[in-house]
Design a protein around this nucleic acid. Sequence first.
RNA 1: GGGGGCGUGGCGCAACUGGUUAGCGUACCAGACUGUCGAUCUGGUGGUUGCGGGUUCGAGUCCCGUCGCCCUCGCCA
Length: 589
Amino acid sequence: MSFPRRTHTCGALRPSDAGARVVLDGWVASRRDHGGVLFIDLRDRYGTTQVVFHPERAEEVASRAQALRAEWCVAVTGIVRERPAGAVNRDRPTGGIEVEATELAVLSESAVPPFEVDDRVEAALELRLKHRVLDLRRPTIQRNLLLRSRVLLAIRNALAARGFVEVETPILTKATPEGARDYLVPSRVNPGTFYALPQSPQLFKQLLMCAGLDRYLQIARCFRDEDLRADRQPEFTQIDLEMAFVEEEEIRAELEVAIGAAFREGLGLAVPTPFERLPHAAAMARYGLDKPDLRFDLPLHDATPFAAASSFQVFRSVLETGGIVKGMAIPGGGAWPRKEIDALGTKVAEFGAKGLATLKVEEADLTGAIAKFFEPALRARMREAFGAKAGDLLAFVAGPPAVVNRSLGELRNAMGERLRLRDPKTFRFCWVTDFPLFEWNPSEKRWDSAHHPFTAPADWTLKGLPGDPGSILSRSFDLVLNGVELGSGGVRIHRRDVQEKVFSFLGIGPQAAREKFGFLLDALEYGAPPHGGFAVGVDRLVQLMLGLEGIRDVMAFPKTASATCLLTGAPSAVPPEQLAELHIRPVLP
RNA sequence: GGGGGCGUGGCGCAACUGGUUAGCGUACCAGACUGUCGAUCUGGUGGUUGCGGGUUCGAGUCCCGUCGCCCUCGCCA
């Protein structure tokens, strides 16, 4: 079937085009029938243009136009007219003109849509995901996908210009013993064996460095079979890069170029570089989290010395069992109603805190239920140390360091929100550096890699093993934007002896190491260059650039919180023959 | 696996402590209207209150179970 090809898009025409004969292809966004004259808003990716049908000038066309309904796909031929005075729509780029239709071709009729395709009408997410095609017609979602496209292109171009080579790595690869749960793919040819979908191309990019590719780039899909969140999908995209013969600063510099390009091309914003550097220990001390939101200050303070000097048994007993006490001053919180202060306690309890102790900051003193446990001089020093002003609320958490930091760090973020200090249009980047190499896993009672087992230690000798593994620093670092971890990376181990030592400490014996990572150890055997790299979460980057709450609307076809696709119905049962071919027999719960 | 929230015409919501015929907006249909742009006016269609059970004279409302969606803790090297 032949149809009239568009001469312009629905966002293109301006008063200077008046008099031109044009063809527009698009979807009927709305219809306003005045009995005589009939208006149609025609929408495509580029905008919306008003089409007017005049019965006395094109009777047959105008009469057929009355049948048009929302979401019909049509081609309109007509003459561009400057709008009469008083009929100009200043809210629209095309509001100065309209197209007076001389011909109308219906390319596809539409059933009545399940919801209105309109940015102002918000349908339930469940419905939107089921009818994602219609949802994706909405201008805001298209704007999101377009920004994503521009960001990816900008980063790709910026890195390509700096010598990065784009290499694709396997999607069908080897299951990894550690880290997230793998998505598995059964092998038909090799009964009883499985591929895994990559959690990231980590090892492949290291192999490429060993191979001499020198600078690698990939826009890589990653898969992790873990529970979802608003900003976590089972498959997501990373800008993945790796470089040979570099150290930390050189990696960070390339990332700053790439991120700078993304903001310049995507939002027209210049982000100041270099980004702030913040050692992990300092971040934990001041903000309680390894991904601090630097759009506001509200620092945490160590209250351990004050607790030790107090007669408050709750605090003292925590200190005796190796715990700490920290707190923060909440500006104006002293005047908040009881209910709201109680809610702060609920907040910290979500992250394991046993309770929240509070003091009100008065003109000359601290008051509250626990004030009597602190001598007046101690109260004055505490007030000074916290930088508190009259009207503030001091909030304390006591417990193990991990719990105290996490709960107060989250409280700090909540206070930033509550005090409206988290402006989505402000972008505060920072590099969090000097992470520990190992992290104690209390539930498994063992040490795990804080980042991953291929991260280089700050000191090749691994001094500290096995005595105090927690004190060993790594050469990894994170990129944090507005309290969100955007990515991580660092310098890798390129010496086989060091890699084996780390494996061994992590409980991966020589035999297991060979079985799981033999190909990596082999690569380290033949002149592996010093190398390092980084990966940036594209979905979250675009999410933050748009000021969104989650990543669903920066991807075309996202999954639900239970990892299903409402559009296609995946995952789904398959016929027994298909399973038999794969040598699979389901064992249902 | 745990916690919380939601589920009512196509869609978005309402219905006080259990109590008339489940209401409003919008969409949809029909009619009117020649300058609207979230058009307007008039009229109309449309409901197994997610599903299953229970308590009660009576259940959208209470209880139990179940399904789906959302948020979240754990988890995510």
